[in-house]
């Protein structure tokens, strides 16, 4: 998740909920092909934006000690197109969290308009793939996430993320 696909957080309540914002621009090259003459944000990338919003919510809840990976898309329903120039907000809520995994529910909105409903499951990989070796450093949460959470989370700066 070193590729950042959300622009900033608007709200962040540790372990409970997060709201992130993304601006969609024609400067994103994939929109030139998706589709020529009718650029719209690919729905799979809406899922990615929600996965990053909710994934950071899940990771922060355990002090970024776990390698949090998207494991399952429980629900993805899309109601409207997202076009260049739109600003979307990603509302993620923690549904359940356990040592091995977490589930989130979420909505994407454009202003008050409901664009999509996306519910996800994340795995804490070290706890689930017993015997498989992963790098010790947390390759999911890198320094770049520092800037996203600055001002929202007091406990983590430098200490947790840059280790």
């Amino acid at each position: 998740m070193r590729w950042i696909w959300i622009d900033k957080f608007l709200e962040f309540e540790s372990g409970k909920r997060a709201v992130a914002l993304k601006n969609v621009t024609l400067a994103e090259e994939h929109l030139h092909d998706h589709f020529p003459g009718f650029p719209m944000m690919p729905e799979c990338l809406m899922i990615e934006a929600m996965a990053q919003t909710a994934g950071i919510l899940v990771g922060e809840a355990r002090g970024f000690a776990e390698k949090v990976v998207l494991a399952k898309i429980k629900k993805a329903a899309f109601h409207h197109y997202v076009r260049p120039g739109d600003t979307i907000t990603l509302h993620a809520e923690m549904e359940s969290i356990a040592p091995e995994a977490a589930s989130t529910i979420g909505e994407i909105r454009r202003g008050d308009e409901l664009i999509a409903q996306i519910s996800l499951m994340f795995s804490h990989v070290d706890k689930n793939l017993a015997g498989k070796k992963f790098p010790e450093e947390n390759f999911v949460f890198t320094d770049m996430f520092n800037s996203l959470l600055t001002g929202f989370v007091e406990t983590h700066p430098d200490a947790e993320l840059s280790r």
Binding site: E95, S96, A98, A101, S103, M121, A130
Partner: peptide, 28 residues
């Protein structure tokens, strides 16, 4: 495998119970 955790979460919510994963699926 991930579905088992999904199922555990759903059972916990539906029945308002705690389901330790190793109790329901101890074979591992």
């Amino acid at each position: 495998s991930i579905d088992f955790l999904d199922i555990v979460f759903r059972l916990e919510k539906a029945f308002e119970i705690k389901v330790p994963r190793e109790e329901l699926f101890p074979a591992e």
